[in-house]
Amino acid sequence: MLNSLSTAATGMNAQQFMIDTISNNLANANTTAFKESRAEFADLAYQNLYIAGTPTSQNTQSPTGLYVGHGTRLVATNRLFTLGSLSSTGNPLDLAIDGDGFFQVQLQNGQIGYTRDGSFNLDGQGRLVTSDGYVVIPNIVIPQNAESINIAPNGTVTVTQPGGTQTQVGQITLVRFLNPAGLESIGDNLYVATPASGQPIQGVANQDGFGALRQGYLETSNVNVIQQMVDMINAERAYEFDSKVIQTSDQMLQDVATLKQ
């Protein structure tokens, strides 16, 4: 009935979505290697009653246009792959990537998952697995009699066995993507490749633009809590403004209804 009613509704929907996104970011403020997302909007199509330059008579043109907008729409949730800070844990199986790159893990459905969460453990067979039990690719098997494990910045895994003999048991490789923002999040700190992210590019840590591996460190979440709180205020207030427009439009319709006595 009134444009302003539906226009303000698009705004309320958008702000609601922004709050949803912020809420997920804040809930994951302490999730290892979590990357914050940002909701982004664009204005909807405009209805042009006439555009600037439309002839108004034989020899005059309208100097200005006349148009009305129809609100906003959600166009993207961009994941921000900036580096979180590295926090020291002292656990030899904790790995942080200091720069670009993802670890690869084997998912149950045969797909390969990608993660930056390097809080690894060993499973019953001595294989390196994530905290949710996904096996790291390439498989790294730690012998049962290993006394200590050393992981070099380039991913080479060396174990010290009784008698002081050092054996290299494998190398952790990384992948990166042209467009990491195009990766699909599937929960558990895991991502899977999509046509938008491009194909994974294999490589060795600490070379060719890949970050170095830091043993005994974990990457913290990159959520900037202060910025999230500020964004939340923005979204909440914008929500309120839009609701006022709806109230006003409602009142206007009521005024129209009372024209007829």
């Binding site: 303000a8 958008a14 664009a42 609100g71 906003t72 403004f241 839009d242 206007m252």
Partner: peptide, 18 residues
């Protein structure tokens, strides 16, 4: 006035649009 409210509504819906 209704046209103006329509316009304001669009502005406010886009208060967080980059």
């Amino acid at each position: 006035d209704q046209a103006q409210v329509d316009m304001i509504s669009n502005n406010l819906a886009n208060v967080n649009t980059y």
